[in-house]
């Protein structure tokens, strides 16, 4: 691309006034980011080592907060629930998005309507989405159990049963995969048709084409999607349990974001909440590192 040479010429031609003007246009974004992201992030880190009720000034506690939270049973449960949720939801969501993209990738009459339909649940606001699924999962009147009953399958108590509540939340998360679907659709489009033609000439079947052409070329996108989905999924477990179960029954759907919210805004323990936040993000960081190590070298090296 000629981008590099073009842009190197631009600031030389333009005067200082022009350059200051550009930075001025960036100011709202940069100042907003400092106030709304940088300062809160640093504050979270600092508060994690204090006791703070948001009224009186914080007092220093050192690393004691971290010892305390690991001795709290609810914290252990929430951490474990979040880990199970991410471990179940992320692979299923990525796989779901990939299957949908493969199924609907071609330019055929009517496929546009299907694509829009598949994307629709993703744009439904969280609160409305939680209410909708609360209705669907209703053990007595909910459409899901009515269908199961009509099929003669034993009905499930879903959100009321501590053994199934977490899986119910996983199931509802599988319908909001529009972003991954679009990303992979675009990635599939970017594969030159010649690659498939060449593969077919070599006598490759459909599976072999998928295995040796599509999958390796999609690999970088799948890694990106997995990384993003881990970050998003780990955090998105607030609204649904908050509205649908309150974290119950018996803490079965108590996830980290909900516990942190309760810790800070119900019990006014901002210090402990911040410490939990840091543990949660260190765990996500560790998980992302593991994903990176495992998935490295899945694609063709020269394409990276």
């Amino acid at each position: 691309m000629s981008g590099a040479s073009r842009s190197r010429a631009a600031p030389l031609r333009a005067g200082d006034k022009h350059r200051y003007g550009l930075w001025l246009m960036l100011t709202p974004f940069l100042v907003g980011t400092v106030v709304l992201v940088a300062v809160p992030a640093v504050l979270t880190f600092a508060l994690a080592f204090t006791e703070y009720d948001a009224l009186s000034p914080p007092t220093w506690r050192g690393v004691q907060n971290f010892f305390d939270i690991f001795h709290e049973r609810v914290f252990q449960i929430a951490l474990q629930n979040s880990a199970i949720f991410v471990a179940l939801a992320v692979p299923l969501r990525v796989l779901g998005a990939l299957s949908l993209a493969l199924l609907l990738q071609h330019r055929r009459r009517g496929y546009g309507v299907y694509r829009v339909a598949v994307f629709l649940p993703t744009v439904v606001p969280d609160i409305a989405y939680a209410l909708i699924w609360l209705w669907i999962f209703n053990p007595v009147f909910g459409p899901l159990n009515i269908v199961l009953g009509a099929l003669g399958v034993p009905q499930i108590a879903w959100l009321v049963d501590p053994d199934t509540a977490l899986y119910a939340i996983v199931i509802m998360s599988l319908f909001q995969i529009g972003e991954g679907f679009i990303l992979l659709l675009a990635a599939l489009r970017s594969i030159p048709p010649d690659y498939y033609a060449a593969g077919s000439l070599d006598g490759a079947g459909r599976w072999q084409l998928f295995r040796h052409v599509t999958l390796p070329l999609l690999a970088p996108w799948l890694v990106l999607l997995t990384v993003r989905d881990i970050i998003v999924t780990a955090q998105n477990t607030f609204t649904a349990p908050y509205l649908m179960t309150g974290g119950g029954p018996y803490y079965a759907t108590l996830f980290m974001p909900l516990l942190i919210y309760e810790e800070a805004f119900d019990r006014f323990r901002f210090g402990l909440g911040s410490a939990m936040m840091i543990v949660m993000f260190l765990s996500i960081g560790l998980l992302l590192y593991l994903v990176f190590v495992t998935m490295r070298g899945w694609g063709y090296e020269d394409d990276a």
């Binding site: 709304l36 504050l43 970050i231 919210y261 800070a264």
Partner: peptide
């Protein structure tokens, strides 16, 4: 992660 900023944005 936007959740990381809840508590301190409140402050």
């Amino acid at each position: 992660p936007i959740t990381a900023l809840w508590l301190t944005r409140f402050v």
